[in-house]
Design a protein around this nucleic acid. Structure first.
Lengths: 171, 171
DNA sequence: CTTGAAATGTTATACTATCACAATGTATCT
DNA sequence: AGATACATTGTGATAGTATAACATTTCAAG
Protein backbone atom coordinates (compact mmCIF):
# COMPACT_ATOMS: atom_id res chain seq x y z
CA UNK A 1 0.00 0.00 0.00
CA UNK A 2 1.18 3.42 -0.91
CA UNK A 3 2.15 5.60 1.95
CA UNK A 4 -0.53 8.20 1.81
CA UNK A 5 0.84 10.78 4.07
CA UNK A 6 4.33 11.94 4.54
CA UNK A 7 6.38 15.10 4.59
CA UNK A 8 3.87 16.78 2.33
CA UNK A 9 1.14 16.33 4.91
CA UNK A 10 0.67 19.28 7.23
CA UNK A 11 -1.08 17.11 9.75
CA UNK A 12 1.99 14.94 9.99
CA UNK A 13 4.48 17.68 10.22
CA UNK A 14 2.61 19.29 13.06
CA UNK A 15 0.94 16.93 15.44
CA UNK A 16 -0.28 19.98 17.28
CA UNK A 17 -2.01 21.20 14.17
CA UNK A 18 -5.30 21.78 15.87
CA UNK A 19 -3.70 24.18 18.32
CA UNK A 20 -1.50 25.94 15.82
CA UNK A 21 -2.40 28.65 13.39
CA UNK A 22 -2.73 26.97 10.05
CA UNK A 23 -4.33 27.02 6.64
CA UNK A 24 -7.46 25.28 7.65
CA UNK A 25 -9.02 25.22 4.20
CA UNK A 26 -6.03 23.31 2.95
CA UNK A 27 -6.02 21.10 6.00
CA UNK A 28 -9.63 20.06 5.42
CA UNK A 29 -9.34 19.70 1.65
CA UNK A 30 -6.27 17.62 2.10
CA UNK A 31 -7.88 15.31 4.63
CA UNK A 32 -10.87 14.87 2.35
CA UNK A 33 -8.68 14.04 -0.62
CA UNK A 34 -6.84 11.46 1.37
CA UNK A 35 -10.12 9.98 2.54
CA UNK A 36 -11.22 9.63 -1.09
CA UNK A 37 -7.97 7.94 -2.02
CA UNK A 38 -8.08 5.66 0.97
CA UNK A 39 -11.61 4.49 0.34
CA UNK A 40 -10.91 3.91 -3.34
CA UNK A 41 -7.91 1.84 -2.44
CA UNK A 42 -9.88 -0.22 0.01
CA UNK A 43 -12.89 -0.52 -2.23
CA UNK A 44 -15.03 1.17 0.34
CA UNK A 45 -17.72 3.60 -0.62
CA UNK A 46 -17.42 7.13 0.63
CA UNK A 47 -21.05 7.87 -0.13
CA UNK A 48 -22.57 11.36 -0.08
CA UNK A 49 -23.76 11.12 3.54
CA UNK A 50 -20.47 9.72 4.72
CA UNK A 51 -18.46 12.26 2.84
CA UNK A 52 -20.65 15.06 4.09
CA UNK A 53 -20.27 13.93 7.67
CA UNK A 54 -16.52 13.93 7.26
CA UNK A 55 -16.70 17.44 5.81
CA UNK A 56 -18.77 18.57 8.76
CA UNK A 57 -16.28 17.12 11.21
CA UNK A 58 -13.47 18.76 9.31
CA UNK A 59 -14.99 22.21 9.63
CA UNK A 60 -13.38 22.65 12.98
CA UNK A 61 -10.94 20.89 15.21
CA UNK A 62 -13.64 20.33 17.74
CA UNK A 63 -15.49 17.15 18.48
CA UNK A 64 -19.13 16.99 17.49
CA UNK A 65 -21.84 14.89 19.06
CA UNK A 66 -23.76 12.51 16.83
CA UNK A 67 -26.83 14.67 17.22
CA UNK A 68 -24.96 17.81 16.22
CA UNK A 69 -23.99 16.04 13.04
CA UNK A 70 -27.53 14.77 12.58
CA UNK A 71 -28.97 18.25 12.86
CA UNK A 72 -26.68 19.44 10.13
CA UNK A 73 -27.50 16.48 7.92
CA UNK A 74 -31.22 16.78 8.25
CA UNK A 75 -31.02 20.49 7.48
CA UNK A 76 -29.36 19.48 4.23
CA UNK A 77 -31.99 16.99 3.22
CA UNK A 78 -30.46 13.79 4.47
CA UNK A 79 -32.33 11.54 6.86
CA UNK A 80 -33.13 13.00 10.22
CA UNK A 81 -33.06 9.88 12.35
CA UNK A 82 -30.16 9.00 14.65
CA UNK A 83 -29.04 5.92 12.72
CA UNK A 84 -28.23 8.11 9.75
CA UNK A 85 -25.58 9.93 11.74
CA UNK A 86 -24.37 6.95 13.72
CA UNK A 87 -23.94 4.76 10.68
CA UNK A 88 -21.88 7.34 8.88
CA UNK A 89 -19.80 8.01 11.97
CA UNK A 90 -19.26 4.31 12.56
CA UNK A 91 -18.11 3.89 9.00
CA UNK A 92 -15.68 6.76 9.27
CA UNK A 93 -14.32 5.38 12.49
CA UNK A 94 -13.87 1.89 11.06
CA UNK A 95 -11.95 3.38 8.16
CA UNK A 96 -9.80 5.44 10.48
CA UNK A 97 -11.17 8.67 9.07
CA UNK A 98 -12.71 9.81 12.32
CA UNK A 99 -12.26 9.08 15.99
CA UNK A 100 -14.61 8.75 18.85
CA UNK A 101 -13.71 10.82 21.88
CA UNK A 102 -15.23 8.80 24.68
CA UNK A 103 -14.76 11.47 27.25
CA UNK A 104 -16.98 13.80 25.24
CA UNK A 105 -19.36 11.29 23.67
CA UNK A 106 -18.37 12.94 20.45
CA UNK A 107 -16.50 12.46 17.23
CA UNK A 108 -13.66 14.25 15.53
CA UNK A 109 -12.11 13.98 12.08
CA UNK A 110 -8.84 12.14 11.89
CA UNK A 111 -6.03 14.49 11.06
CA UNK A 112 -3.75 11.92 9.52
CA UNK A 113 -5.70 9.02 8.14
CA UNK A 114 -4.08 6.22 6.26
CA UNK A 115 -2.04 4.79 9.05
CA UNK A 116 -3.13 2.21 11.48
CA UNK A 117 -3.17 4.28 14.55
CA UNK A 118 -4.89 4.68 17.82
CA UNK A 119 -3.89 8.16 18.81
CA UNK A 120 -3.84 10.02 22.07
CA UNK A 121 -6.18 12.98 22.22
CA UNK A 122 -5.56 16.30 23.86
CA UNK A 123 -8.79 18.03 24.73
CA UNK A 124 -8.70 21.70 25.68
CA UNK A 125 -11.29 22.40 28.35
CA UNK A 126 -11.34 26.08 27.50
CA UNK A 127 -11.69 26.21 23.72
CA UNK A 128 -12.86 22.62 23.22
CA UNK A 129 -10.39 21.94 20.46
CA UNK A 130 -9.09 18.41 20.17
CA UNK A 131 -5.65 17.49 18.87
CA UNK A 132 -4.11 14.14 18.17
CA UNK A 133 -0.78 13.57 19.82
CA UNK A 134 1.70 10.97 18.63
CA UNK A 135 0.63 7.97 20.64
CA UNK A 136 3.31 5.47 19.83
CA UNK A 137 5.40 5.99 22.97
CA UNK A 138 2.27 6.08 25.10
CA UNK A 139 0.79 3.02 23.50
CA UNK A 140 4.08 1.22 23.86
CA UNK A 141 4.09 1.95 27.57
CA UNK A 142 0.51 0.76 27.85
CA UNK A 143 1.24 -2.46 26.01
CA UNK A 144 4.29 -3.03 28.18
CA UNK A 145 2.35 -2.59 31.43
CA UNK A 146 -0.40 -4.82 30.13
CA UNK A 147 2.03 -7.50 29.03
CA UNK A 148 3.53 -7.46 32.50
CA UNK A 149 0.28 -8.89 33.82
CA UNK A 150 -0.37 -11.12 30.83
CA UNK A 151 -2.99 -8.89 29.24
CA UNK A 152 -3.21 -8.63 25.46
CA UNK A 153 -4.12 -5.16 24.23
CA UNK A 154 -6.38 -5.10 21.20
CA UNK A 155 -7.56 -1.53 21.30
CA UNK A 156 -7.19 1.49 23.49
CA UNK A 157 -8.39 4.96 24.12
CA UNK A 158 -6.06 7.52 25.56
CA UNK A 159 -7.47 10.95 26.25
CA UNK A 160 -6.18 13.92 28.19
CA UNK A 161 -8.07 17.01 29.28
CA UNK A 162 -6.25 20.22 29.98
CA UNK A 163 -5.28 23.51 28.45
CA UNK A 164 -3.96 24.12 24.96
CA UNK A 165 -1.06 26.56 24.58
CA UNK A 166 -3.27 29.49 23.56
CA UNK A 167 -5.76 29.04 26.39
CA UNK A 168 -3.01 28.45 28.93
CA UNK A 169 -1.43 31.74 27.96
CA UNK A 170 -4.78 33.53 28.11
CA UNK A 171 -5.28 32.26 31.66
CA UNK B 1 -1.03 11.88 55.70
CA UNK B 2 -0.51 8.28 56.61
CA UNK B 3 0.36 6.01 53.76
CA UNK B 4 -2.70 3.89 53.71
CA UNK B 5 -1.60 1.14 51.48
CA UNK B 6 1.68 -0.60 51.23
CA UNK B 7 3.23 -4.02 51.23
CA UNK B 8 0.37 -5.31 53.32
CA UNK B 9 -2.09 -4.43 50.59
CA UNK B 10 -2.86 -7.22 48.20
CA UNK B 11 -4.05 -4.79 45.60
CA UNK B 12 -0.68 -3.11 45.61
CA UNK B 13 1.39 -6.19 45.47
CA UNK B 14 -0.50 -7.46 42.47
CA UNK B 15 -1.63 -4.85 40.04
CA UNK B 16 -3.20 -7.67 38.08
CA UNK B 17 -5.30 -8.62 41.07
CA UNK B 18 -8.54 -8.69 39.15
CA UNK B 19 -7.15 -11.28 36.78
CA UNK B 20 -5.42 -13.39 39.40
CA UNK B 21 -6.89 -15.93 41.73
CA UNK B 22 -7.16 -14.21 45.08
CA UNK B 23 -8.97 -14.04 48.37
CA UNK B 24 -11.73 -11.80 47.18
CA UNK B 25 -13.48 -11.52 50.52
CA UNK B 26 -10.30 -10.10 52.00
CA UNK B 27 -9.75 -7.92 49.00
CA UNK B 28 -13.19 -6.33 49.36
CA UNK B 29 -13.10 -6.02 53.14
CA UNK B 30 -9.70 -4.45 52.93
CA UNK B 31 -10.76 -1.90 50.34
CA UNK B 32 -13.79 -1.00 52.42
CA UNK B 33 -11.71 -0.55 55.55
CA UNK B 34 -9.36 1.72 53.72
CA UNK B 35 -12.28 3.70 52.36
CA UNK B 36 -13.54 4.21 55.92
CA UNK B 37 -10.13 5.35 57.08
CA UNK B 38 -9.67 7.63 54.12
CA UNK B 39 -13.01 9.36 54.54
CA UNK B 40 -12.47 9.81 58.26
CA UNK B 41 -9.12 11.37 57.60
CA UNK B 42 -10.59 13.74 55.03
CA UNK B 43 -13.67 14.51 57.09
CA UNK B 44 -15.88 13.19 54.36
CA UNK B 45 -18.99 11.21 55.12
CA UNK B 46 -19.15 7.67 53.83
CA UNK B 47 -22.90 7.53 54.34
CA UNK B 48 -24.94 4.32 54.12
CA UNK B 49 -25.83 4.74 50.44
CA UNK B 50 -22.30 5.62 49.50
CA UNK B 51 -20.83 2.78 51.48
CA UNK B 52 -23.35 0.36 50.05
CA UNK B 53 -22.55 1.44 46.51
CA UNK B 54 -18.89 0.83 47.16
CA UNK B 55 -19.72 -2.62 48.54
CA UNK B 56 -21.73 -3.40 45.43
CA UNK B 57 -18.89 -2.34 43.18
CA UNK B 58 -16.49 -4.41 45.25
CA UNK B 59 -18.51 -7.58 44.78
CA UNK B 60 -16.80 -8.25 41.50
CA UNK B 61 -13.96 -6.89 39.47
CA UNK B 62 -16.36 -5.91 36.77
CA UNK B 63 -17.61 -2.47 35.95
CA UNK B 64 -21.26 -1.73 36.71
CA UNK B 65 -23.49 0.78 35.01
CA UNK B 66 -25.15 3.42 37.16
CA UNK B 67 -28.49 1.77 36.52
CA UNK B 68 -27.22 -1.63 37.59
CA UNK B 69 -26.20 -0.05 40.86
CA UNK B 70 -29.50 1.77 41.11
CA UNK B 71 -31.48 -1.43 40.66
CA UNK B 72 -29.58 -2.98 43.53
CA UNK B 73 -30.06 0.06 45.71
CA UNK B 74 -33.77 0.37 45.16
CA UNK B 75 -34.20 -3.34 45.89
CA UNK B 76 -32.64 -2.62 49.25
CA UNK B 77 -34.89 0.24 50.14
CA UNK B 78 -32.80 3.18 49.03
CA UNK B 79 -34.15 5.68 46.56
CA UNK B 80 -34.94 4.44 43.10
CA UNK B 81 -34.22 7.53 41.06
CA UNK B 82 -31.06 7.89 38.96
CA UNK B 83 -29.59 10.75 40.99
CA UNK B 84 -29.33 8.43 43.98
CA UNK B 85 -26.88 6.23 42.13
CA UNK B 86 -25.08 8.99 40.28
CA UNK B 87 -24.53 11.06 43.40
CA UNK B 88 -23.02 8.20 45.29
CA UNK B 89 -20.87 7.21 42.33
CA UNK B 90 -19.72 10.78 41.84
CA UNK B 91 -18.75 11.00 45.48
CA UNK B 92 -16.79 7.77 45.32
CA UNK B 93 -15.02 8.94 42.21
CA UNK B 94 -14.14 12.29 43.74
CA UNK B 95 -12.66 10.51 46.72
CA UNK B 96 -10.70 8.17 44.52
CA UNK B 97 -12.66 5.18 45.78
CA UNK B 98 -14.13 4.30 42.40
CA UNK B 99 -13.32 4.97 38.80
CA UNK B 100 -15.41 5.68 35.77
CA UNK B 101 -14.63 3.51 32.77
CA UNK B 102 -15.61 5.74 29.91
CA UNK B 103 -15.42 3.05 27.31
CA UNK B 104 -18.13 1.12 29.15
CA UNK B 105 -20.15 3.98 30.61
CA UNK B 106 -19.67 2.16 33.86
CA UNK B 107 -17.97 2.32 37.22
CA UNK B 108 -15.56 0.10 39.08
CA UNK B 109 -14.23 0.10 42.62
CA UNK B 110 -10.72 1.39 43.06
CA UNK B 111 -8.38 -1.38 44.04
CA UNK B 112 -5.83 0.78 45.76
CA UNK B 113 -7.39 3.94 47.07
CA UNK B 114 -5.49 6.45 49.08
CA UNK B 115 -3.07 7.57 46.47
CA UNK B 116 -3.58 10.30 44.00
CA UNK B 117 -3.70 8.26 40.89
CA UNK B 118 -5.23 8.14 37.50
CA UNK B 119 -4.73 4.54 36.55
CA UNK B 120 -4.78 2.74 33.25
CA UNK B 121 -7.54 0.19 32.89
CA UNK B 122 -7.36 -3.18 31.25
CA UNK B 123 -10.77 -4.38 30.15
CA UNK B 124 -11.19 -8.01 29.14
CA UNK B 125 -13.69 -8.27 26.31
CA UNK B 126 -14.38 -11.92 27.10
CA UNK B 127 -14.99 -11.99 30.85
CA UNK B 128 -15.59 -8.26 31.32
CA UNK B 129 -13.23 -8.00 34.24
CA UNK B 130 -11.39 -4.73 34.68
CA UNK B 131 -7.95 -4.37 36.20
CA UNK B 132 -5.95 -1.30 37.06
CA UNK B 133 -2.47 -1.23 35.64
CA UNK B 134 0.30 0.99 36.96
CA UNK B 135 -0.15 4.09 34.88
CA UNK B 136 2.83 6.16 35.87
CA UNK B 137 5.02 5.29 32.88
CA UNK B 138 2.07 5.69 30.55
CA UNK B 139 0.99 8.95 32.06
CA UNK B 140 4.54 10.20 31.95
CA UNK B 141 4.68 9.46 28.22
CA UNK B 142 1.35 11.20 27.72
CA UNK B 143 2.46 14.27 29.62
CA UNK B 144 5.70 14.34 27.67
CA UNK B 145 3.94 14.19 24.29
CA UNK B 146 1.48 16.84 25.42
CA UNK B 147 4.24 19.10 26.67
CA UNK B 148 5.94 18.79 23.30
CA UNK B 149 3.03 20.70 21.77
CA UNK B 150 2.56 23.02 24.71
CA UNK B 151 -0.48 21.28 26.13
CA UNK B 152 -0.97 21.10 29.88
CA UNK B 153 -2.50 17.83 31.05
CA UNK B 154 -4.92 18.15 33.94
CA UNK B 155 -6.65 14.82 33.77
CA UNK B 156 -6.61 11.75 31.62
CA UNK B 157 -8.29 8.49 30.93
CA UNK B 158 -6.32 5.57 29.62
CA UNK B 159 -8.21 2.41 28.81
CA UNK B 160 -7.32 -0.74 26.90
CA UNK B 161 -9.60 -3.47 25.66
CA UNK B 162 -8.26 -6.93 25.04
CA UNK B 163 -7.94 -10.34 26.59
CA UNK B 164 -6.96 -11.15 30.13
CA UNK B 165 -4.51 -14.03 30.69
CA UNK B 166 -7.21 -16.58 31.50
CA UNK B 167 -9.41 -15.71 28.53
CA UNK B 168 -6.44 -15.54 26.17
CA UNK B 169 -5.46 -19.06 27.20
CA UNK B 170 -9.02 -20.30 26.81
CA UNK B 171 -9.10 -18.94 23.26
C1' DC C 1 -30.46 -7.59 -16.93
C1' DT C 2 -30.46 -10.02 -12.99
C1' DT C 3 -29.17 -10.88 -8.61
C1' DG C 4 -27.13 -10.37 -4.17
C1' DA C 5 -25.06 -7.35 -1.05
C1' DA C 6 -24.51 -2.88 0.78
C1' DA C 7 -26.50 1.32 2.11
C1' DT C 8 -30.30 4.18 3.54
C1' DG C 9 -35.00 5.39 5.39
C1' DT C 10 -38.00 5.03 9.23
C1' DT C 11 -40.26 3.78 13.57
C1' DA C 12 -39.63 2.64 17.91
C1' DT C 13 -37.16 2.00 22.00
C1' DA C 14 -33.28 1.35 25.27
C1' DC C 15 -29.75 3.28 27.83
C1' DT C 16 -27.12 7.11 30.17
C1' DA C 17 -27.11 11.42 32.68
C1' DT C 18 -28.62 15.82 34.72
C1' DC C 19 -31.84 19.55 36.51
C1' DA C 20 -34.61 21.52 39.94
C1' DC C 21 -36.75 21.71 44.14
C1' DA C 22 -38.47 19.72 48.44
C1' DA C 23 -37.45 17.31 52.60
C1' DT C 24 -34.40 15.52 55.83
C1' DG C 25 -30.42 14.91 58.47
C1' DT C 26 -25.91 16.52 60.68
C1' DA C 27 -22.46 19.52 62.72
C1' DT C 28 -21.51 23.67 65.02
C1' DC C 29 -22.17 27.65 67.82
C1' DT C 30 -24.21 29.91 71.49
C1' DA D 1 -30.97 22.35 74.25
C1' DG D 2 -32.14 25.40 70.46
C1' DA D 3 -31.02 27.90 66.32
C1' DT D 4 -28.49 28.11 62.28
C1' DA D 5 -26.08 26.80 58.18
C1' DC D 6 -24.86 23.28 55.28
C1' DA D 7 -24.58 18.67 53.32
C1' DT D 8 -27.24 14.85 51.92
C1' DT D 9 -31.16 12.44 50.17
C1' DG D 10 -35.90 11.96 47.95
C1' DT D 11 -38.49 12.64 43.93
C1' DG D 12 -40.39 13.90 39.45
C1' DA D 13 -39.26 15.50 35.18
C1' DT D 14 -36.42 15.83 31.31
C1' DA D 15 -32.20 15.97 28.39
C1' DG D 16 -28.82 13.50 25.86
C1' DT D 17 -26.74 9.27 23.72
C1' DA D 18 -27.22 4.97 21.17
C1' DT D 19 -29.19 0.79 19.03
C1' DA D 20 -32.76 -2.75 17.31
C1' DA D 21 -35.53 -4.14 13.71
C1' DC D 22 -37.40 -4.09 9.36
C1' DA D 23 -38.71 -1.96 4.85
C1' DT D 24 -36.84 0.15 0.79
C1' DT D 25 -33.50 1.69 -2.37
C1' DT D 26 -29.06 1.74 -4.64
C1' DC D 27 -25.06 -0.25 -6.44
C1' DA D 28 -21.76 -3.39 -8.49
C1' DA D 29 -20.56 -8.03 -10.15
C1' DG D 30 -21.67 -11.59 -13.03
Amino acid sequence: MAKLHDASCPGCQSPDLAFARHDHAHCATDALARADALCAERKQRLTPVRRRVLEILLESHRALGAYDVLTRLSAEGYGNQPPVAYRALDFLEEQGLAHRIRRLNAFTACMHPGEAHSPAFLICRACDKVAEAPADPIRAALIREAAAVGFTVEGSNIEAVGLCPACAEAA
